[in-house]
């Protein structure tokens, strides 16, 4: 079975991110492979361990995404492909999805795994969009996955519960928390990954018209989130504090008693 995993490098969740006065975004230089993408990589590796085959990691757009690909290799992926093109620098999720879909068509996997959302732009667009462009079914927010030959069963998280879904490969699965616990790479694998040669494809290589990845949605500026005033701590005797707490809850809850 050939499994492709879509990965992306994003700022570490502890990185300082600040909207400047001029509307640009300042991001501290701390990066990590997207949390949900690592889960997808882990799930792919586990399926490979049982079913055999290979796991290939893909990413679109240069910059730090090579580190996400290396992370996949360090965890145990067999290969990595970077779709790199100047036209992708400004691309939105749909443009990125077009580039990845073209690369996937060339690669011909049986299953595509990705994270349900990237924690920088928080769009959750690429997975479903790639599936749509490939003409595949997809299941997103998946917390459990079984593959048996060509059949799969996935559990999808929805508000208020879980749905069990069955279908046939090929399918795109977008991973949610709980699908798999990502392994910590062994140092030997880390060293190999740090030296690994990366396959790259340009849009021209893939027969993708650069115009088709022009963004439909663009961020004009970034703003600071609405600031909260400094916290008001409840002071005094325990009894007084509990009464104050009760009063705060009741009034904030809309006066319902």
């Amino acid at each position: 079975m050939k499994i492709a995993v879509l990965v992306k490098q994003v700022p570490d969740h502890e990185a300082l991110v600040l909207a400047r006065g001029d509307g640009t975004l300042e991001i501290e230089d701390r990066w990590a492979t997207n949390f949900f993408d690592e889960i997808a990589i882990e799930q792919a590796l586990r399926l490979e361990a049982v079913q055999g085959g290979e796991v290939i990691a893909l990413s679109a757009g240069a910059g730090r995404n090579t580190d996400a690909l290396r992370r996949a290799l360090a965890m145990g992926a067999d290969g990595a492909i970077l779709v790199s093109d100047p036209a992708l620098a400004a691309a939105d999720g749909l443009g990125t999805a077009r580039a990845l879909a073209a690369c996937l068509r060339e690669l011909g996997p049986d299953l595509v795994l990705c994270g349900r959302v990237a924690l920088d732009d928080e769009m959750g667009l690429v997975g479903p969009a790639v599936a749509e462009i490939l003409g595949w079914p997809h299941v997103a927010a998946v917390t459990a996955l079984e593959v048996d030959g060509k059949a799969f069963r996935a559990v999808r998280l929805v508000e208020g519960g879980r749905e069990s879904i069955e279908g046939q490969l090929p399918v795109l699965i977008a991973a949610a928390k709980g699908l798999a616990e990502p392994r910590v790479p062994k140092v030997m694998q880390v060293m190999k990954a740090s030296r690994a040669a990366m396959r790259t494809r340009t849009l021209a290589d893939l027969g993708v018209d650069p115009g088709s990845v022009a963004p439909l949605v663009r961020t004009r500026v970034f703003e600071r989130p609405p600031a909260r005033p400094p916290v008001r701590m409840m002071e005094g005797e325990p009894g007084d504090r509990v009464r104050e707490l009760a009063s705060i809850l009741v009034s904030a809850a809309g006066g319902r008693r």
Binding site: L18, G23, E122, R218, T219, R220, P225
Partner: peptide, 20 residues
């Protein structure tokens, strides 16, 4: 339309324009 949305875990707000 111009929309606002939280990015980077709510650390910033993106003011988004639709081009197409």
């Amino acid at each position: 339309p111009t929309a606002r949305r939280a990015v980077h875990g709510g650390k910033a707000v993106a003011v988004v324009a639709f081009e197409g």
